[in-house]
């Protein structure tokens, strides 16, 4: 019941923000749609969320969330610049490689956040995840040597520590 109510409130607020006006028609339509969504999806929506400490350390974690978003946007632009340079080359030359990276993260939320970090920044693309060995299979667009692979893995570890502070 608590989950359904929370889903209803969240979707209802989102509905009003996106609708942009307050009148009885918008209110009634929003109530019907949000009720259907909360009845159908409330169980699945919160299925994978694991809250270890509850909301106790949330203000402290806000700083880390802010840092993650800043790092994310900075890396997206850096990576996009590298890829866009290839697009305008006379003969686009790549040295792509499939690499598997092991993670030390335990929480499912942090793993999912780390996949976001693979897919957008760093010229990498997360292709698969092995649950047993906790390994990501990553497609890297520009890797010339093994030393470069190790260098990029350490770059990932930096983000991994930041994400671990939020969720673990």
């Amino acid at each position: 019941m608590k989950k359904k109510l929370l889903t209803f409130v969240l979707t209802f607020v989102l509905w009003f923000v996106l609708a942009g006006r307050f009148n009885i028609q918008v209110f009634l339509l929003g109530t019907i749609i949000c009720s259907i969504i909360s009845l159908m999806m409330a169980e699945n929506l919160f299925r994978l969320i694991q809250m270890k400490d509850g909301t106790k350390d949330f203000p402290k974690k806000l700083y880390y969330i802010f840092m993650v978003i800043i790092a994310f946007i900075y890396d997206v632009f850096l990576s996009a610049f590298k890829v866009s340079r290839h697009a305008f080359e006379m003969k686009p030359s790549f040295s792509p490689r499939l690499v598997s990276v092991q993670t030390s993260l335990e929480n499912s939320n942090s793993m999912a956040t780390l996949v976001h970090f693979f897919t957008l920044p760093q010229g990498a693309l997360a292709m698969d995840f092995d649950d047993i060995y906790k390994e990501y299979v990553i497609h890297w667009i520009d890797v010339d040597s093994d030393d470069e692979v190790e260098g990029k893995k350490t770059l990932i570890l930096k983000h991994e520590n930041l994400i671990a502070k939020i969720f673990d």
């Binding site: 990576s79 996009a80 866009s84 897919t119 693309l125």
Partner: peptide, 12 residues
């Protein structure tokens, strides 16, 4: 490689 273009450049 096309997915790389579709993810990073599109997002930026």
């Amino acid at each position: 490689t096309r997915l790389h273009a579709g993810s990073k450049c599109l997002m930026a």
